[in-house]
């Protein structure tokens, strides 16, 4: 039998390692300010956030629902969505983090990448 103290130590180590990795990943800056919006696994829009002058909305209709994305100079967020959990809305603004905004129910992902791709969104 493994002693409870040993189990506690093993779990404590896992917690520390995962915690450190989580903090490191969370604070890791994004490689760039180009937002890529994926729906259902396919890249749908690319927006260079540094070139955004006016706030604008982008409605992404996936096979399972709609996410309204708000784009402002230098940042992007999901403003509203008809998904059940609202995790994507609660995630707030994405401006400088490598952690993507995810709407699992609608299979929508917004992540920041490097490089200035062409702005393919229509006004």
């Amino acid at each position: 039998m493994v002693k409870t103290r040993t189990w506690a130590a093993v779990i404590g180590c896992i917690l520390l390692l995962a915690g450190a990795a989580a903090v490191w990943l969370w604070l890791r800056p994004a490689p760039g300010h180009v937002a890529e919006i994926y729906s259902d696994g396919a890249l749908r829009y690319t927006v260079d956030l540094d070139r955004v002058r006016e706030p604008r909305r982008l409605t992404v209709e996936g096979p399972r629902g709609v996410n309204v994305i708000l784009i402002e100079p230098g940042r992007i967020r999901v403003e509203s969505a008809d998904c059940p959990d609202q995790v994507c809305v609660n995630a707030g603004w994405l401006s400088d983090s490598a952690s993507p905004i995810v709407c699992l129910p609608h299979r929508l992902v917004i992540r920041l990448t490097g490089g200035a791709g062409p702005d393919t969104t229509a006004g």
Binding site: I14, A18, Y38, S99, P100
Partner: peptide
């Protein structure tokens, strides 16, 4: 989630999910 969304970068959430799992 990685398979469904075809987004391997979702793996960045694995450490947070491990902490929350513990």
């Amino acid at each position: 989630a990685i398979l469904v969304t075809a987004t391997p970068s979702l793996a960045v959430y694995l450490p947070v999910l491990t902490v929350s799992g513990v």
